[in-house]
Design a binder for these strands. Structure first.
Lengths: 250, 250
DNA sequence: GTCTATAGTCGGATAGAC
DNA sequence: GTCTATCCGACTATAGAC
């Protein structure tokens, strides 16, 4: 309600506990983290974990809700921009044979000159690249490193916490990719080929987390900073061009 | 020594403990697994964990040594076949400007008729696909599922166990892929582009494990069996064609 | 080699003072 | 809301019988 502005004492405590817990859970996992360790890292008393979250499990879930909120907030601008542009791009495209004409009342400057399929594809490809590059930046950033670790852990043994993530930012991200790919392939965005295509794309960026140790070791990288990120982006750019620019052949 | 044939009682006990431990460690992780649980699953007494492996950590390392041996054994036929074929394929190719001529004394039927670059690329691409499909089968098989889970866990927090895996089968797999890609791209196999290309390829197959929960959920799959594996293979095949068949353009 | 029994430690949770 | 003190269960590891 109106408490959204006034930050009560308990809110700052809760936040401190959640932020400390992100690091610890991400680092050592749920079971290896002890309540004592969590409380000490947050600089609060042991008993407050039970008081505020009902126990370690409650804190764990609160951590995922918090991460999901943060991620959604971070992706929101890009997501909204792309969604509105998708309407523009596909405005003249028939996704579905029956609804060929879509009376578009939006006062948009470009929406009345129909784009060629080639133009649509090119623009979609640019947007896909933007999404993946954003994803790479999120995955490589030190700040979000614990997030990624937590999500990966949940992927392997999905529980209640996975639901929180999946139904939030994760599904959004995939849906955007699928809509863009659908424009290029001229297929439905929920076609299984389109979805697998999106997933294999994300797989390529996710090596930053899922295979980070192998990546560092095999590339001979001591850390993954700007230079290394740039190299990976270059590779992804190259792959994207190859995967989607020659799509007219098939 | 000569004990390799006669299976002593203690060996069968150790093996039972290791195999039970693979499932449990893979399922719940190192910390969440208790010695009691491990002993019960193996059908042995609690104290034998300390006796045979010196404790839970020792058992954990033994598990990784075992997995690495198994994986190496499984990949060996394919690995050797490919290595010998790479010699054939690249026999007439100059990897390095100085060593253009390689006097090949192998009594191979095909080694004396030089292959065109197109032929070499095509064959390499077939072999890459074979490697990735094998990888997909390993990752999707229920039997090896716990292996993959363990490896993923170690990637996130690499310790002594990661060393065992990395310096074994994992590095072999990557090296084979790089050598094949190098033939297509006509670059050194240790060139960073080649290595990143191999890693992004593996990333696409690794979604079977790293994003399994998302994969199942987003694709609407209830399980990942033959039908689902076939779909993923089809997608990987498609991606491979796009990524490497048009390489002559660049 | 395998088992039983137990010592010693640490964990999560809570009652009750402030 | 926050803290101290404490309970009790579960754990690892080991000593010693067989």
């Amino acid at each position: 309600m109106d408490r959204s502005k006034t930050l009560k004492k308990s809110d700052t405590t809760r936040l401190a506990m959640i932020e400390a817990a992100i690091d610890i859970f991400g680092d050592v996992g749920f079971h290896a983290a002890s309540n004592r360790q969590l409380a000490k890292a947050a600089g609060v008393n042991l008993a407050l974990i039970s008081y505020h979250f009902g126990g370690k499990s409650g804190l764990y879930l609160a951590v995922f809700r918090h991460i999901n909120d943060q991620m959604a907030q971070r992706l929101k601008p890009l997501s909204e921009a792309i969604h509105s542009e998708i309407i523009k791009i596909s405005g003249s495209q028939a996704k579905n044979p029956k609804s060929k004409q879509q009376p578009n009342t939006i006062d948009d400057t470009e929406c009345h000159k129909p784009l060629s399929q080639l133009q649509r594809s090119k623009r979609s490809l640019e947007l896909i690249e933007a999404v993946l590059f954003t994803h790479i930046e999120v995955l490589s950033s030190e700040q979000t490193a614990p997030w990624a670790k937590l999500i990966l852990k949940e992927q392997q043994k999905p529980g209640e916490a996975f639901e929180i993530m999946y139904s939030g930012a994760l599904a959004d991200l995939l849906t955007i990719l699928c809509k863009l790919i659908a424009i290029i392939l001229q297929k439905q965005h929920d076609h299984s080929e389109v979805k697998l295509s999106a997933l294999t794309l994300l797989g390529q960026t996710q090596i930053l987390r899922s295979s980070r140790a192998t990546l560092e070791r095999y590339m001979g990288w001591e850390s993954i900073a700007d230079k290394e990120v740039a190299l990976l982006k270059k590779q992804i750019h190259h792959n994207l061009q190859a995967l989607f620019l020659t799509v007219s052949h098939q």
